[in-house]
Amino acid sequence: MSTIETRLAELGVTLPDAPAPAANYVPFVIVGNLVHISGQISANAGGQIKGRLGDSMSVEQGAEAAKACAISLLAQLKKAVGGDFSRVVRAVKLVGFVNSTPEFTDQPKVINGASDFMVAALGDAGRHARSAVSAASLPFGVAVEIEGIFEIK
C-alpha cells in the first residue's frame, strides 16, 4: 500500500472509480511528467452536489463539495498512473470554480476544502498553487468544479 493509500485509509476515504467524461473530452492528458486532469464536478455516492454559494449553500457545505471534487481528482490521478500512486510526485496546481452569487466573496474558503484534503492525502506533496474564482453557473447546477495538474515520475 502506498503512502497516499495509507493516508486515504486513515482519513476514511475510499476512492470511487474515476468518473467518465460527460462530453467530447478526455478525463486527463499526460504531457511529459505532468498530468492535466479535466474539471471534476462536485459529486459523491449520493449524486451531484448542487447549489449556489451565497444563496442555498453555506461556506462549510461548499468546502465539502470542493473536497468531493478533490476526491474525484485523486481517482482520475490514480487511473492516470495505472493505479501506482508511488509515481505521484506532487500536486502542482488546482483551479477551482464556485457557483456563487455576485455578492459572495469567500471562494477561497470554499476551495480550501479541496486544498486541505490534498495536503491531508498527499502530505507536503499536496501543497499546490491555486486559483479560486466565482462562476455565474456550473454544469448541471453543481456547486463546485475543480481541475488539477499533478507531477508524476
Rank of each mutant, 00 (worst) to 15 (best):
T14N: 12
V110Q: 05
S137N: 13
F150M: 09
A65R: 02
F117S: 02
F97E: 09
K153T: 12
A23Q: 11
P139T: 06
S72V: 02
N112M: 13
A135S: 15
A120I: 02
L11V: 08
V13Q: 03
A9M: 08
E64N: 12
H36D: 13
V144E: 01
T105K: 14
A121T: 02
A80Q: 03
P19E: 09
T3P: 00
A125K: 14
N112E: 14
L122C: 07
V59C: 03
A132D: 11
G141D: 06
S86F: 00
V89L: 14
D106V: 02
G126V: 03
N44W: 06
A80V: 05
G39I: 07
D55S: 15
V26E: 13
V31K: 14
A114V: 06
F150H: 05
N99C: 08
A68Y: 00
G47Y: 08
F150A: 06
G126N: 02
L34N: 11
T6C: 04
I149K: 07
A43N: 02
A22W: 10
S115Q: 13
F150Y: 15
L11N: 09
S86P: 01
T6E: 14
V110I: 15
A68E: 00
P108W: 08
S42Y: 05
G148K: 01
E5R: 00
Q61H: 09
E10T: 11
F140S: 14
F85E: 01
V81A: 07
A143T: 04
F140W: 07
S2K: 04
G141E: 04
L15F: 06
A125R: 13
V98S: 06
V81R: 03
S86A: 13
L53P: 00
V144W: 01
P139N: 06
G113A: 09
I146W: 01
V142T: 15
D124T: 14
R52P: 00
S72M: 07
G46K: 12
A22V: 14
V31A: 14
I4M: 07
A125S: 15
V142G: 03
G96R: 04
D106R: 14
M118T: 00
A66F: 03
N44A: 08
P139C: 05
I30M: 10
A65L: 06
N24T: 12
L77R: 00
T6Y: 05
A114W: 01
K153W: 05
G12S: 11
R90K: 15
L74A: 09
K67M: 12
A23V: 09
Q40E: 12
K79A: 15
A132E: 10
R90I: 04
